[in-house]
């Protein structure tokens, strides 16, 4: 009882931290369900709102969630690259800025981007060419993929002579709670244009998650990082080369995921539990009497 009293004195701050932990560990597409349960356990709307207002933006950005723009002009991806002041996110393709309600996970407003929010014409040329190539690739490779290309660094560079960085973001999510299954694929490619070396360095991070929960709870969590490089060329040539590299690495990664799944039943899983005993026949339970008799006999003979 003493324990209970002690524990019920959990500070508000600790409660908020615990609530945030649950929210941030929600599987893809399930944060709203988790939020509902957390809210009912906390039983304190002020604390819940505090936890939600801190956890949702982080979750939304790390899961690269995609929200429909209210004017039906497309979607906006919630990412750290597109984030502006005050819950606003830039969609470079339509040069619009969307205001996002993180906890409800909807866009509440949209306005045209101001000039200073957009990259210089020089950068925009590279960004726009790459966006066109990535869009082609994503439409081909992902049945329901969304992508965007942002300027991550040096958006005001006016022309050759300085470094800049673009970020390619690809997000594909599938939520089918009626089939007890949710999943998401997120890839982020940082593309650094090095003016002095005349090279383009590419770093990718891919994260894939899936949750299957019909009479159980099974989750996949896969991560991969890779690097590559190409030459700094004209915007069109760069776009083709970079999207080719991304396609190559993502295809390879997909193949290695398949390979990991294929090696499960006969090799990986075997280190946990074999399908059949080492003897390759079912365990001789009918002989267990003999086992114990042998033991008795050994005991009596003092063999042990």
């Amino acid at each position: 009882m003493a324990d209970e009293e002690e524990e019920s004195e959990l500070s508000d701050k600790q409660k908020v931290e615990i609530a945030k932990w649950f929210l941030l560990n929600s599987p893809p597409g399930e944060i709203q369900y988790v939020a509902k349960d957390v809210k009912s356990i906390l039983n304190d709307d002020v604390l819940f709102d505090e936890a939600a207002s801190e956890a949702f933006p982080v979750y939304n950005k790390s899961h690269l969630i995609c929200l429909a723009l209210p004017n039906r002009s497309g979607d906006v991806l919630v990412t750290s690259f597109s984030e502006l002041e005050g819950n606003a996110f830039l969609d470079p393709r339509t040069t619009q800025v969307a205001t996002v309600d993180h906890v409800k996970q909807v866009c509440t407003g949209v306005r045209p981007a101001a000039d200073e929010e957009l990259p210089s014409p020089y950068i925009e040329e590279y960004r726009c060419s790459l966006d066109a190539e990535i869009l082609k690739y994503v439409e081909e490779a992902y049945p329901k993929g969304v992508c965007s290309v942002y300027c991550a660094n040096g958006k005001d560079v006016e022309g050759p002579g300085a470094d800049f960085e673009l970020a390619v973001v690809i997000s594909a999510a599938r939520h089918s709670p009626q089939n007890f299954c949710n999943g998401s694929w997120c890839s982020i490619w940082n593309v650094e244009f090095k003016d002095e070396q005349q090279t383009v360095e590419i770093k990718g991070k891919i994260q894939v998650g899936a949750h299957y929960f019909e009479e159980g709870n099974v989750q996949l969590d896969a991560k991969h990082e890779c690097k590559d490089a190409t030459l700094f060329q004209a915007s069109d040539d760069c776009a083709v080369a970079i999207s080719g590299i991304i396609r190559h690495h993502e295809t390879e990664y997909m193949a290695s995921l398949e390979a990991s799944y294929l090696s499960l039943p006969d090799s990986t899983f075997k280190d946990l539990r074999r399908k059949l005993p080492v003897t390759r026949t079912l365990f001789p339970w009918h002989n267990t009497l003999q086992f114990s008799l042998t033991r008795e006999v050994s005991k009596e003979l003092g063999i042990k």
């Binding site: 159980g216 099974v218 991969h224």
Partner: peptide, 9 residues
């Protein structure tokens, strides 16, 4: 292939 993790209950 990076890290590949499955967990379940």
């Amino acid at each position: 292939s990076g890290t590949f993790s499955l967990s379940g209950s």
